[in-house]
Amino acid sequence: MLYVVIIFLWTAILLYLLLGGADFGAGIIELFTSKKNKSITRKTLYSAIGPIWEANHMWLIIAIVILFVGFPVIYTTMSVNLHIPLTVMLLGIIARGTAFTFRHYDAVVDDMQNLYNPIFAWSSFITPLFLGIIAGSAVSGHIDPNANTFMEAYIFSWLHWFSVAVGLFTVSICGFLASVYLIGETDDEHDRLRFAHKAQFFNIAAVVCGILVFIASLIEHIPLIDWVFGNWVGHIAILSATLSLVWMWYLLYQGKTFLLRPLAGFQVTMILLTTTYRHFPNIVILKNGGYLSLLEHSGQEKTIYALGMALLLGSIFILPALFYLIYSFQKKEEVAH
């Protein structure tokens, strides 16, 4: 059952990265869109993420609940040492969710939009940045359980090159996912081209940030290269991701939209797989060389069993409904209004 729970945790994180990521990315794109195209981008964005953003957001809550029920030591260690980035991320989540809804549902469209729009766009940038920082810090070995000073315990645990680079990498991945997603959401040829350009832009940004992550890992003596390249899973994943990337660029040049989304999703899945596979089951690596392991720091057996059952039971209800939701809104049926 422990493995069931772990698979759920991993899947929830992956889906949050993919779906929530595309969601964040939509805001990031808005940030990187020239003034004259902003309003059309916004329109596509509403119709694309409106019906599903609340559901996307749930993956994060599922991941958190799994952590605090099943792996309380991991949850509390991260909550204590990464208090500050977590708080910033939360503020980002509040600002984003409310700004998105407010601007959509405000009965009167006026100057208030000038308040909602930048809040939405900037918080879409900051939230994944800090998500990445948190993820980077967890594995970077900067969390020091024996820290004596405030700076050591609560600031240097997350403020270092590696995690910032991971944060930027996450942002560019989100932008990338969203552009690819939006290509399929618009009927306008001109728009499609714009989103295709955005996809290329964020793809290049992701590669650059990825290189930054590797450089930072070398500077800070984090064995990232070994995690990624030191085993056959890593080799296969990197190889297939690269191949699919080439394929995708080809499709983008051809102006095709077919298969773009699965390919982009596949690449991100591979990235998450390589970076987590090698140091599984340890998801928090501490400064003193210790680590917090999903296998060793889990709750008691009965808890894990109950949690696993709850998750399995939940998926029986949720997955079909979720697929039907996405399917219904994908079907570009004419709205009989």
């Binding site: 609340e54 749930m58 609940v65 029920v69 309380p72 709850a310 939940g314 209800f317 409904a321 809104f329």
Partner: peptide, 23 residues
């Protein structure tokens, strides 16, 4: 967490269904 977490993990399901139904 591990003791009173049961309702929270079931609640996850309830929220999810709620969010989907709301969509």
């Amino acid at each position: 967490g591990p003791i009173f977490g049961m309702p929270f993990s079931l609640e996850g399901t309830a929220f999810f269904i709620e969010a989907i139904a709301l969509g």
